[in-house]
């Protein structure tokens, strides 16, 4: 059974983000890190907004980059602001673990500002059933045609798993400068 994973992160919006009609005026940057383990998948998305009105307004509203009272406070506020920023970070991406139903907890979010650029990072862990020795786990990333953002992607194994070629089943090295293409599906398989 193929289960599409609609990013649950979208459901945690606290504050809506203005319509992104002017998104095409910017050149955002996005990185995707995926690490697949025998019992879970870790996903991290890093997003950088171009300097300008959008960055400035968002930073001012949520105090991004301002000194926080403590680490936990900063974490909370980053979460709060990040939830408003998440749709943009995730725009056009879908994740799936083939044949499995991952269980997710709360995403973690961080925001920062450097040289006028709003930067965000999101981390989420999806729990999975333990992978048996003779089983294969395939992680799928899909991109959509709308709102495509070029995304540098790294997908690699954690603990005792290893990345294999999806077709041949042979071990392979994780590409370190893989770019997601528009309206495409990318598969990464792992085994023990």
């Amino acid at each position: 059974m193929i289960t599409r994973l609609i990013p649950i992160l979208l459901l945690l919006l606290a504050i809506t983000w203005p319509a992104s009609a002017d998104a095409h005026d910017f050149d955002p940057e996005r990185q995707l890190l995926v690490q697949v383990f025998s019992e879970h998948v870790d996903i991290m998305i890093m997003y950088t907004e171009a300097p300008g009105v959008r960055s400035d307004l968002f930073s001012a509203k949520f105090g991004v980059g301002a000194p926080a009272g403590n680490a936990e406070a900063k974490e909370f506020f980053d979460n709060l602001a990040g939830r408003a920023f998440l749709p943009r970070m995730l725009d056009g991406l879908e994740f799936e673990v083939e044949g499995e139903a991952p269980r997710t907890g709360e995403p973690e979010l961080r925001l920062d500002e450097q040289e006028g650029r709003l930067m965000a990072a999101a981390f989420v862990r999806y729990e999975l059933d333990e992978l048996d020795d003779d089983e294969r786990r395939t992680f799928i990333v899909r991109t959509q045609d709308r709102s495509f953002i070029p995304t540098r992607t790294v997908v690699y194994a954690g603990d005792e798993l290893q990345l294999i070629d999806h077709d041949s089943g042979q071990p392979r090295l994780a590409p370190d400068d893989f770019q997601l293409t528009r309206n495409a599906e990318h598969r990464f398989s792992f085994t023990r």
Binding site: Q35, I43, M44, A121, G158
Partner: peptide, 11 residues
């Protein structure tokens, strides 16, 4: 190099 650790040390 763990994604978890990378996030922890992010910025």
């Amino acid at each position: 190099r763990d994604v978890r650790a990378i996030f922890d040390h992010w910025h």
